[in-house]
């Protein structure tokens, strides 16, 4: 069966504001699936609640639009049930770094084989522009006329401190690079975290495409950068924090950490998936485990 990009879309129109970065992110996701030859029936996307999740209606794959902050946790359950599926958690910065930060931390540590796309527009947009941890300190936001009082959290350092097996940064204004990064993330065996800086013309007026162009540097332009070195990645993160620059590309990737599933003794050498195994079981041999 030949796959074309339209197969990944429903007949619904997106509801985002003109100029929203979400358009490019979801197009890039669909394109990445298509180019990897993963059909709509072979992918599962766990959408969060927020502007990104409002795109769920427009994407034609197996999908679940669940609860705010929980897209990663739900995706994990889906992945464990059937590893044949390409599992993607699609989540905003508010949901990922606020309500569901524990899920991000544990997904990275557990190294589930799935891909996490973080739509980072630096605010809670669907609820009309509240501050998130990626909103710059001092910036005036909804209900904060004096500006956001708290310090920012250095997300790069936070993620790198967890020794991720795949951490990339991308930008919605460069869908070509974004598509390539998503493809690499899906192909990576392990937990791939992709933080995507995106435009939000309604609630983040400062960060215009021009602003991003001035701040973004593609990693590939660095002549000496070894992304398999966690130390190099941490140096880069430090530089980003000091200068306000955003490097895009695969910040860090390594493959010597096994995935969660591969470490499960109980599933060693088993070829079938949990979804194939629902049947009546004789439990006589298990009575010995009673108290």
């Amino acid at each position: 069966m030949s796959i074309d990009i339209n197969m990944y879309s429903t007949n619904k129109q997106p509801t985002w504001c003109p100029g929203c970065g979400n358009f490019a992110i979801h197009v890039s996701l669909k394109k990445a699936l298509m180019e990897l030859n993963i059909s709509p029936s072979q992918a599962f996307i766990s959408f969060d609640i927020g502007c990104n999740g409002n795109g769920a209606d427009t994407v034609n794959t197996y999908a679940f639009k669940g609860l705010h902050g929980r897209a990663i946790a739900l995706a994990t359950g889906a992945h464990i049930a059937n590893r044949k599926y390409t599992v993607v958690a699609d989540i905003g910065d508010g949901a990922c770094f606020h309500e569901g930060i524990d899920h991000l931390i544990n997904a990275i540590k557990s190294n589930y084989d799935m891909t996490i796309l973080i739509h980072d527009n630096q605010n809670f947009a669907l609820t009309t522009g509240q501050a998130t941890v990626t909103t710059k300190q001092g910036k005036k936001m909804y209900a904060l006329p004096e500006g956001k009082p708290e310090r920012d959290i250095d997300i790069n350092q936070l993620i790198l401190s967890l020794q991720p097996t795949f951490f990339a940064k991308a930008y919605s204004g460069d869908p070509q690079q974004l598509t390539e990064i998503i493809k690499k993330g899906i192909e990576h065996k392990g937990c791939s975290v992709i933080q995507i800086s995106q435009t939000c013309p309604t609630y983040n007026k400062e960060c215009t495409p021009q602003w991003f162009n001035e701040h973004i540097i593609k990693l590939e332009t660095l002549s000496q950068y070894n992304n398999s070195s966690l130390e190099d990645a941490q140096k880069l993160a430090k530089e980003m924090a000091q200068t306000g620059k955003i490097y895009t590309g695969i910040i860090h990737q390594h493959s010597n950490t096994p995935t969660f599933y591969d470490r499960l003794e109980s599933r060693k050498d088993i070829q079938s998936e949990l979804v194939d195994e629902v049947q009546e079981y004789d439990i006589t041999q298990l009575l010995k485990y009673c108290n």
């Binding site: 359950g77 979804v275 195994e277 079981y281």
Partner: peptide, 28 residues
């Protein structure tokens, strides 16, 4: 190791039930 199921201690109860609903959606 005998029943061959997956047993996972989740990071909290919300994760535990979210994992369960995700796994149930997929059909196990």
């Amino acid at each position: 190791n005998e029943s061959k199921i997956v047993v996972k201690q989740a990071e909290n109860e919300i994760t535990a039930i979210q994992m369960a609903i995700g796994a149930m959606y997929m059909g196990t």
